[in-house]
Amino acid sequence: MKLTEKETEILEILEEDSRLTPETIAKMIGLSEEETKKLISGLEEKKIIVNYATTIDWKKVDGHEGVTAMIDVKVAPKRGVGFDEIAERIYRFNEVKSVYLMSGAYDLSVVIEGKTMNDIARFVSEKLSTLESVLSTTTHFILKKYKHDGIIFDHEDKDKRIVVSP
């Protein structure tokens, strides 16, 4: 779908900070607030703007640390529907946060969250691996998050001055 220059500008601004008001965005792109609201509504109706999300560093909140895993899944695609049917079955599980069709040795990459490693193991053994089209899985546990969706975690402004010694 071809977008106007102003629509593209709005998307780039909202991607950076979705909390900005239409009034602020209007000033940034040189349109009236009403025109800006209309463009944003149109982008929402067309499902180009899908959601407004907040990134939270849950490890800083007691009791919400949890475990995130990335699971590589090899599947047997079905005739006529390819990978879409099995991907849909997988993304309908509550634990699943993302599903991607990938190139390479595995077909799907699945990101899931659980409270413990045992929750992840139980999901893989009782739900994911038992699906008819699933041939094999490989699970990777995320140990530390450095950057996610362009947001840097635990970044401290360190002194970047060069040490000079006599």
Rank of each mutant, 00 (worst) to 15 (best):
S129K: 15
E44H: 01
L143Q: 11
A87P: 02
G104S: 06
S103C: 01
E132S: 14
L131C: 05
V67D: 00
Y52S: 05
I86K: 03
G82F: 12
I90S: 02
S136T: 07
K78A: 14
N118M: 06
S41K: 12
K38N: 13
S125H: 05
L43G: 09
T68Q: 12
S125K: 12
S109H: 03
V67F: 02
D57C: 04
D57L: 04
S133F: 00
T36I: 04
K59E: 15
V134D: 03
T116Y: 05
A105R: 13
R89D: 13
Y52V: 03
S129V: 00
H140R: 12
I71R: 06
G66Y: 08
S125N: 13
A76Q: 11
K47E: 15
D107E: 03
E132L: 10
T130M: 14
M117G: 01
M102W: 00
I120G: 03
A53Y: 08
T138Y: 09
N51D: 15
V73R: 08
E44K: 15
E113M: 07
E132V: 07
G63A: 11
E88A: 09
G42T: 02
V124T: 12
R89T: 09
K97G: 01
A87T: 11
D72S: 13
S103Y: 14
E65W: 02
V73W: 10
E45D: 13
V75W: 08
E113Q: 12
E88S: 12
P77F: 06
E45T: 13
I112L: 05
A105F: 04
E113N: 11
D119T: 05
E85P: 01
E95H: 02
S129D: 08
Y106W: 05
E95K: 11
Y106N: 10
I86G: 06
G114Y: 06
S133V: 03
Y52I: 02
I142E: 07
G63E: 07
I56N: 04
G80Y: 10
E113G: 09
S136H: 04
M102Q: 14
E45A: 13
E88M: 10
E113F: 06
L128R: 03
H64I: 07
T139N: 05
L128V: 06
H140N: 13
M70D: 08
A76C: 00
G66C: 08
K115Q: 11
T139P: 10
E132C: 01
D62M: 08
R89L: 12
L39T: 00
V99T: 06
T139A: 04
T36D: 07
K37E: 13
V110M: 02
G63P: 11
G42W: 01
I120T: 04
R92P: 01
S41P: 00
H140G: 00
D62P: 15
T68G: 03
E44L: 14
V110A: 01
M117L: 10
D107A: 07
G42P: 08
M70N: 11
I40M: 14
L135H: 03
G114T: 06
I49D: 10
K37L: 14
V50F: 06
A87I: 01
S133R: 15
S125E: 08
T139D: 01
G66D: 07
M70Y: 14
K38S: 15
E95G: 00
D107P: 09
T139S: 12
N118R: 10
Y106F: 14
L128M: 04
K46C: 02
E113H: 11
L108F: 09
R92H: 13
G66Q: 06
E88W: 10
E45C: 00
T68M: 12
I86L: 08
V50P: 00
